[in-house]
Write a protein that binds this DNA or RNA. Structure first.
Lengths: 212, 212
DNA sequence: AATATTAGCGGACTATAGTCCACTTGTCAA
DNA sequence: TTGACAAGTGGACTATAGTCCGCTAATATT
């Protein structure tokens, strides 16, 4: 498994020249302002216009950098997502070396994903909403790498003879991640009242049933 | 299993007296107008203001009947949802009488739910979106009865000794329905390009793995 | 250093959901 | 029949996301 590039709008542009100095300063200012406002008053209670105003830039400037609130939120999570990804990969290497089955690794990955989703759900809500709004064709970055990880583990488990026969692994990866869609996840947490542990255990049970 | 009341804002009010005649006429007019506009131009391209305007009523009137676009869409699906529910229940009685295992019934139910979701996804998108917007506390009617059905079948399967031990049935019901959340479902259909058959089979495989 | 190129900027503008409230009218009870 | 009042109505208003486009100025080229 390989690290997935998580910085679609990072400072080093794919296109060509480096970011202009004033633009870089504004980017930092915007991120910093957004982070503060979100922390003080909650993500859902802060609108884009306000972020621009408090940061002292025009709305056009804000939207040039971040095409919507979701992208901005994604940028704020960037570091933590990368760290989560890296630490997961490191962990897996270790577990594989110890001979821990891939299905077990999958169960643990899902469990830590439950925690990640819980912690970042306010930002993730915006990311998903934006992904939806831009039409179904735009993919959602967090989901993308989560899917890559899950499906890689499923394939490894199959190669390793841990899985029951005739499973549609490609679809299965999606089905296992479906309960982690943020809106649904929040419903389970705050309406159903399920704890993180219960959700993690439920997913573990499902994963275990896939065994031969 | 019992039929679930699907008409939260039907003509016969739970509270008391009958709907005023002029209001009833407007309700019909609104539904009829919305149905036509949605059919002609697509649900997502028709806004509430336009429906009110074309129907010749004020926005206030429209919103008094349907607190948001989701409720309006739900009202438009009302008949079909009821029919789907009734025919599912009838079908189950027959299958149970024939001795078809409950897990098999569950797999078939999910399969028909996949079709239902696919057909009504444009309206369901609005229903779910509205459910989300009104805060996590408002429950989503279609999901509610779907969950009732799934969890009843799971419990029946358990009583009947069809299930593996120590499963968290309550959670499992949610997990099985998660891939049918409309936004996620559309992602699978139109981005991943999965067919209805493939999704149905995927869910069937998952259900079958729950067996003892 | 002068100039051209083009990224960057800002804020007015549109679109849409949904709220509010003063006004109107149907319904029921006397 | 009539009057009270709850139900119903309409449209102005707010809030917010996101677009557009003419102006400005940083950077590259000469």
């Amino acid at each position: 498994m390989e690290r997935i590039e998580l910085e679609p709008m990072g400072a080093e542009r794919s296109g060509g020249r480096t970011e202009r100095a004033d633009a870089a300063a504004n980017r930092a200012l915007i991120l910093c302002t957004a982070e503060r406002l979100f922390r003080e008053r909650g993500v859902e209670n802060v609108c884009m216009a306000e972020i621009a105003e408090v940061a002292g830039v025009g709305k056009g400037t804000l939207y040039r950098r971040y095409a919507n609130k979701g992208e901005l939120c994604l940028a704020l999570m960037d570091t933590q997502m990368t760290e989560f990804q890296d630490s997961s990969l490191t962990l897996f290497s270790g577990l594989t070396a110890q001979g821990v089955p891939y299905l077990e690794q999958l169960a643990r990955f899902l469990r830590s994903l439950v925690e990640f989703t819980d912690i970042h759900s306010p930002l993730l809500v915006e990311v998903e909403r934006a992904g939806m709004i831009q039409g179904v064709d735009r993919l959602n970055l967090p989901h993308f790498w989560q899917y890559m990880t899950v499906s890689a583990l499923l394939r490894a488990a199959e190669r390793n003879g841990e899985l029951a026969a005739n499973l549609d692994l490609e679809y299965l990866g999606e089905a296992l991640l479906a309960p982690l869609q943020v809106d649904y996840f929040r419903f389970q947490r705050y309406v159903r009242g399920y704890s993180i542990e219960r959700i993690g255990e439920g997913l573990r049970a499902l994963v275990e049933r896939l065994g031969a």
